[in-house]
Simulated scan of single mutants.
Amino acid sequence: MPANTRLKGRSWEDEVRALARLLPGHGVLALLFFTAVLTAWSILFTMQAFPGGTSFAGRSGVGALLWLCSNTVAVTGYGTTFLMWVLMTLAMMAPTAFPAFRTYADLTHTAAANSLSLAVLVAGYLSVWLGFSVAAAFVQVRLASLGLVDPLGRSTSHVLSGALLVSAGLYQFSALKAACLKACQSPMAFFLTHWQPGNRGAYRLGLRLGAVCLGCCWALMLLAFVAGTMNLAIMALAMVLMTLEKLPDIGAIINAPLGVFLILAGTTVIVLPFLPN
């Protein structure tokens, strides 16, 4: 066997082993998880890279998907907006919960849980964000009908943009945010406190985990309307910030400054247009 072939083989094996270490003993689940997340990001990127036309006629397969995903709310309606939010929440929120999923995976090495219950837990978590996508898509369609967001999902009103920024900043200091963030930062304590056995219990636990995560992040997610729901750079930045917030040491440092920054930014956005030139 040529040396370069052996090197390639070893490189691939190393990558597989590295992936398996992310969820020890659950390499297949880890592969499926990250494949789903990367697929969501890839579709969102494609939606930006290839603008759609004005007609669905004659389109099929990937072309039909691109048309649905790259046209405006006015052209494609609620269903496509909902699909976009599903992709956004999968791409942004699933990675932020991975430390919790890995913590639960550690419990599968005991009699308390297994691979199936881990998959059910993830499904429960994603169910909450599916519900959020339903509501967020409705809000976007409604705002679009009122002329308050443009075809890219970006606010056309400086008052709306400022209000979203200020609200998100104030929420950083709320008791609910603190309680939800504490649960996200201590997943083992969360699981031990709310433990329910069996697959049904795992699903309920996933729902509770999703609700806690929603309590942490909903206000930051709605900032998508400020920069545009299809702004991948802002989406990536928001994902990083929400992930860092859930790390105990880093979260304690950035939570308050982030809140102050958002309040100041929102106030500036609201007041600036009223200032004399």
Rank of each mutant, 00 (worst) to 15 (best):
F138V: 14
V120Q: 06
H158G: 09
V159F: 13
V120N: 07
A144S: 10
V149E: 00
G153Q: 09
L121D: 01
L130Y: 12
A119N: 09
T156D: 14
S145D: 11
L148F: 07
G147I: 06
A135Y: 13
V128D: 03
V128R: 05
A179Q: 08
G147P: 03
L181D: 00
C180W: 00
L148Q: 08
A168W: 02
S145A: 15
V159E: 05
G147S: 06
C180G: 13
A135H: 03
Q172C: 10
F173K: 05
A135D: 04
S174A: 10
V120S: 12
V128C: 00
S174P: 04
S155V: 05
L126I: 14
L170Y: 10
L170D: 01
V128M: 05
Y171C: 08
V134I: 09
S157Q: 04
H158K: 11
V141F: 08
S174M: 09
L126K: 02
S174V: 09
A175I: 02
L181H: 04
V134Q: 04
G153N: 10
Q172M: 11
L164V: 08
C180R: 00
A137C: 08
W129G: 02
L152F: 11
A137P: 04
S133F: 06
K177M: 06
L170W: 03
R142L: 14
G153V: 05
A119W: 15
P151N: 01
R142F: 14
Q140A: 11
S155L: 10
V166A: 09
F173A: 01
V139D: 01
R154D: 00
L152C: 15
F138W: 15
A168F: 00
L164H: 04
A119I: 12
S167A: 14
V122E: 10
V149L: 08
L170Q: 04
A178P: 09
G131M: 03
R154H: 09
F132S: 14
Q172N: 04
V141D: 02
A136I: 03
F132H: 08
L130M: 11
A163E: 00
S155F: 14
V134L: 10
V159A: 11
A136D: 00
S174T: 04
L160Y: 03
